[in-house]
Design a protein around this nucleic acid. Structure first.
Lengths: 198, 198
DNA sequence: TCGTTACCATACGCATGAGTATGGATTGCG
DNA sequence: CGCAATCCATACTCATGCGTATGGTAACGA
């Protein structure tokens, strides 16, 4: 994601000029594993091997970078999962598949988890509102396909999504009693049994 | 909660000297509605009508205040709910009652929600780990009383608690599509039906 | 009453991090 | 080649917020 295809004949990433997208990607990486609060321009610059002088050519302010990074994440972030699930022919199999997929590919959700902890920051609220809204609507539609009435489907989607969000917090943020791999799978299956309409 | 019973014969809280507990209470109030990141000594001092000079008499550092406030919250915070639920004679009625109670008394959970967003801060992690652990053990025991097998009870408790945590985030942090009062009650009842063993 | 202790104000030092000013280097293009 | 535009470094300013130093005032016991 993001490397402009220069690829000079040299082993290492080799000092090439940077673009705005490079900064946005770096910002998202930093957010993913240190949180929004750690987004400092000088720290980013060090990590990219340059100084502030570079940054302030590409962006007018720190806010601008955060904004751009958020929009970038909202677009290229995670449209794939929804598309893949919707491509499944067997409608009844979509729900369990969605659960298992999300449970086992946690890496793409690290940015979402980080932004969850930055909801006091005004810039992230609208982005998270939109993303969460879209996902919940998707979940609702799946529950409707599974045979629930409109009201039931909506409430079940709310419950499921809340469980998802809470799960993110209680795990790679808080490290609650390091659960084993088998035990985790058992948990996921329990969740599928409990939240999937009979 | 917290006010040492001087209560001089005066109408207003009237400029009396402050104690360490006063600072801790103020800190918890500030954390509850602005987050841990907003915990600054000079801001707190202004809010209490004094200056930093006062603060650094009671505490050695800002970290010390946060630590003391967290421990205070962990102790006096919320033992009551658990006690009240355990006092209920009808075992089968405990679970729905717990759900409804938590859903409608959101104020006491504001500190917990704020700390949830500060899990990158090393000081809050152990506290949140202990509190969350105790609560989940309580939930597990209730599910056992409701007739679930040990494994089932544990997993159901995990699921329920995750839903609780996620609910906190998606509401008074993110303000997801301002749900109406009746609709909220319907949601709570749906949750009870879904998460309570038949 | 007097002094000691507890509590608070004022005025600093010092580190961090955002933003600016300005000049140097590199690239693409005529 | 040579000149612009692009990209980056260096060296500042400025605001914020923690912590310290030190002196002042109110409370309380002897």
């Amino acid at each position: 994601m993001g490397y402009h295809a220069h690829m000079n004949v040299s082993a290492k990433p080799e000092r090439t000029r940077l673009s705005a997208e490079d900064w946005e990607d770096a910002a998202l990486r930093l957010i993913a594993d240190q949180g929004v609060g750690a987004l400092a321009v000088e720290a980013l610059a060090r990590q990219l091997g340059v100084t502030k002088g570079s940054f302030y050519w590409h962006f007018r302010t720190r806010e601008a970078l955060l904004q751009a990074a958020l929009e970038r994440w909202e677009q290229y972030g995670e449209r794939e999962v929804i598309a893949q699930i919707e491509a499944m022919p067997d409608v009844r199999a979509r729900l369990p598949e969605l659960f298992r997929r999300v449970a086992h590919e946690l890496a793409p959700h690290r940015v979402y988890a980080a932004l969850l902890k930055a909801l006091d920051h005004p810039q992230v609220v609208p982005v998270m509102a939109r993303v969460s809204q879209r996902r919940m609507e998707f979940l609702t539609s799946i529950y409707r396909e599974a045979g629930l009435a409109p009201e039931e489907a909506l409430n079940r989607a709310r419950l499921t999504y809340a469980a998802y969000v809470g799960f993110l917090q209680l795990n790679f943020t808080l490290g609650l009693p390091r659960i084993s791999h088998e035990e985790f799978d058992a948990y996921v299956e329990h969740m599928i049994r409990t939240l999937t309409p009979a």
